[in-house]
């Protein structure tokens, strides 16, 4: 039950190191291949000339969500063991607003 290998924040063994770099590699590869490293595509979201970023992000969220809840329902994965960011509502509202502002100004 639960995650196969639990990393406790610190990367301590060669296996953990290898896993982190591997997952990161696929992450970077998928992001670039989908066009999410392109600032014109990111800016496009805010002027509605290219909404690729929204399509990719929300498809990813829904896909991961379904897989997580399906495996949880089947008893393969224990969701309570997974990382969830703590909730600080007012900070997040302000942070989101500033991040969105920075994103449209900076493009990334």
């Amino acid at each position: 039950m639960g995650p196969v290998i639990k990393l406790a924040g610190m990367v301590n063994t060669p296996v953990d190191f290898f896993l982190a770099v591997c997952f990161g590699f696929f992450f970077g590869f998928i992001l670039e291949s989908s066009g999410l490293a392109n600032c014109r595509k990111i800016a496009g979201v805010f002027y509605l000339y290219d909404v690729t970023v929204v399509k990719v992000m929300f498809t990813a969220i829904v896909t991961a969500m379904l897989l997580l809840y399906a495996t949880s329902a089947l008893g393969i994965l224990d969701l309570s063991l997974l990382y969830v960011p703590d909730t600080y509502l007012y900070s997040y509202i302000l942070a989101g607003f500033v991040l969105g502002t920075g994103m449209v100004i900076g493009g990334y």
Partner: peptide, 11 residues
């Protein structure tokens, strides 16, 4: 985009 999103979701 949708394929990229599915790949990202699986990852």
């Amino acid at each position: 985009p949708y394929l990229g999103g599915i790949a990202l979701g699986f990852l």
